[in-house]
């Protein structure tokens, strides 16, 4: 009853002048609890050693193996073949620069946007005192921060975003989520205005059109939808500060959201 999987892989080696983008078919016998990690390695080791793809932790924690699986971006190591039809079509993630076949350069991309949003806790490192106790924090807040910090930068949410595909300079959901992570962190001393300078534009939160592809593909179930909404509301209200009465703004800002600085 075990199936014979038909795996169709996008092939293109940009470094080889003779190579043209095409789809290549491979056939692999399925077995129990087989993941795409196993299937692809069988292909590479037994059928065509030149196929390029990326795996690292093979446990769904590092984010290396993002690819488009039957139309949807996802983590290949995390995908069981039994959840897929017999015919599996694999493409590299769009938006990112292709390295070859299924392999794309997410590292450079994420570092570039990280630089843009100055993705670090802005505080005074020289103020650290070795003898002092650590600054206290509520456990619930720590958990909230980690919830956003769990992103593995696999790039699936970027590849699943229509805006990102139309506009090269769109920062994408993962990046806005990252800003949100610093926003709720009391150790980060940036003000609302500072955050506005970073993502208060059409490359940032206001570029998002609410397509929610990001939300629906994120393999780590990062609360992207909610973070996009909260950041957008915060910055939109920030932009009309001085136009609307402050009382109303404050009320709206805090509505249904637990994300004020503590």
């Amino acid at each position: 009853m075990s199936r014979r999987l038909h795996i169709e892989i996008f092939r293109y080696n940009p470094l080889d002048p003779d190579s043209v983008p095409h789809m290549q078919s491979f056939y692999v016998n399925e077995y129990d609890s087989m993941t795409l990690f196993i299937a692809l390695n069988i292909i590479r080791e037994e059928q065509d050693p030149s196929v390029q793809f990326d795996f690292c932790c093979r446990a769904g924690i590092c984010g290396s193996c993002g690819m488009v699986i039957n139309g949807r971006p996802g983590l290949a190591c995390h995908t069981q073949t039994r959840d897929l039809p017999e015919h599996i079509v694999l493409h590299p993630l769009p938006v990112f620069k292709l390295i070859g076949d299924l392999s794309v350069d997410t590292g450079t991309w994420f570092r570039a946007v990280g630089k843009k949003i100055e993705a670090w806790v802005h505080s005074d490192d020289t103020a650290f005192d070795v003898r002092a106790e650590e600054a206290r924090m509520e456990n619930a807040l720590a958990e909230q921060i980690f919830e956003l910090d769990r992103c593995v930068e696999c790039g699936c949410c970027i590849a699943a975003c229509g805006t990102a595909r139309m506009r090269e300079d769109f920062l994408g959901a993962a990046t806005i989520n990252r800003v949100a992570r610093f926003y709720i962190d009391p150790r980060d001393e940036r003000s609302d205005d500072d955050y506005y300078d970073v993502i208060g534009n059409d490359q940032g939160v206001f570029g998002c059109m609410g397509l929610l592809g990001c939300e629906d593909v994120c393999p780590k179930k990062i609360p992207l939808q909610d973070q996009l909404g909260i950041m957008r509301r915060m910055l939109a209200l920030n932009s009309v500060k001085g136009i609307l009465p402050k009382g109303i703004l404050d009320k709206m800002k805090h509505k249904g959201c637990c994300h004020e600085k503590h």
Binding site: W120, V130, A132, N139, E143
Partner: peptide, 18 residues
């Protein structure tokens, strides 16, 4: 212990005592 505190200062969201 010092290094853990420094990591906390830099932004690690350690779980905290409740």
């Amino acid at each position: 212990p010092i290094v853990m505190r420094e990591m906390a200062h830099w932004g690690v969201p350690w779980n905290r005592v409740v």
